[in-house]
Amino acid sequence: MSELASETAGMGAPSLVSEPQETVVKKAKKKVKVVSRQQLSFGKRLRRDWPLLLMCLPAMLLLLVFHYVPALGNIIAFQDYNPFVGDDPLEAFLYSEWIGFGNFEYLFKNAAFWDSVVNTLSITAFQLVFYFPIPIFLAILLNSILSPRIRSLVQSVVYLPHFFSWVLVVSLFQMMIGGAGLLAQTLRQAGYTPPDMMTDPDTFMFLITSQALWKDAGWGMIVFLAALAAIDPALYEAAAADGAGRWRRMWHVTLPGLRSVIILLLILRLGDALNVGFEQFVLQREMVGREAAEVVDTYVYYQGIAVQQWGIGAAAGLFKAVIGLLLIVGANKLAHRFGEQGIYRKS
């Protein structure tokens, strides 16, 4: 029996006998499958699967060149990388001097670097309080609207900015609330002196959070709306029959229904604590100044590419990547502890 299965599979046409084979498989279950797989030699499998492997190849090559090689290239963090000792980056890499942890020593003594770390973490903390709950609130609010027409209208409008670029979002904010924007223009015509909210470092936190909200709060509702739609309406009815009012129903039915999604997203956000977005900050760093707008990513860019301290920039990038990886793995452990799936499954 097992011979038959393996032979047909080896011919690359298991379908010819697929029906009887399937019943065999069902009867003997795992045994047949395992045996048949083992008996297929590497050559036979290669002959059968080469078109599929070939199909994967272009994507693998692209990722190799533009993802994995640069990921490995992070080792220039341990070099005093000098682009001028060779004709191209590869040669320069081969001839540059290895300096061990020198770049990291510089980095850890550098106040500007720690400022960027502190800025990044405070932005994450700030947005956990002032960004994170908003999509949940909006989703619950929208879910309570009965008219399907109003619901889909609101959804269409608030999802839209997700598809805009950061340049566009920051530009629109500049045009609305900037020093020469619509709001300032209106206030000036009414005889007030308008503040320039786009360049004030003290309110920068609020500014970037409102930009992030404008762009992605609507889009962020999707996952919560899906979770809300999955709550059994009978629960609400039962709660109402037991005398629960609308607030009690929200507390005892709606929020527990969202609990697992909220915990999951919260943990993932913590795992991503060093990522607060890059373009949003690089666009506004000039306007508000380095003290408020420098995050780790912009530090990497300015140190590494703008000031051409390649090794130090790469060291900052590697530092962020390693901490980020640890945070993600940790966050997933935490997610599994809560009985959630995380971004990868427990294996």
């Binding site: 060149v65 533009f66 993802h67 994995y68 090689v69 640069p70 990921a71 490995l72 290239g73 992070n74 220039i76 682009p83 191209d88 980056p89 590869l90 890499f93 990513d297 990497v300 860019y301 590494g304 590419i305 390649w310 920039g313 790469a314 990038g317 590697l318 990547a321 980020g324 990886l325 993600i328 793995v329 971004i343 990868y344």
Partner: peptide
């Protein structure tokens, strides 16, 4: 998903 290329090595690869 877990391992990102750094900005600076990416820059060097593309320009290289």
């Amino acid at each position: 998903f877990l391992i990102y290329p750094g900005m600076i090595p990416s820059y060097l690869v593309v320009t290289g």
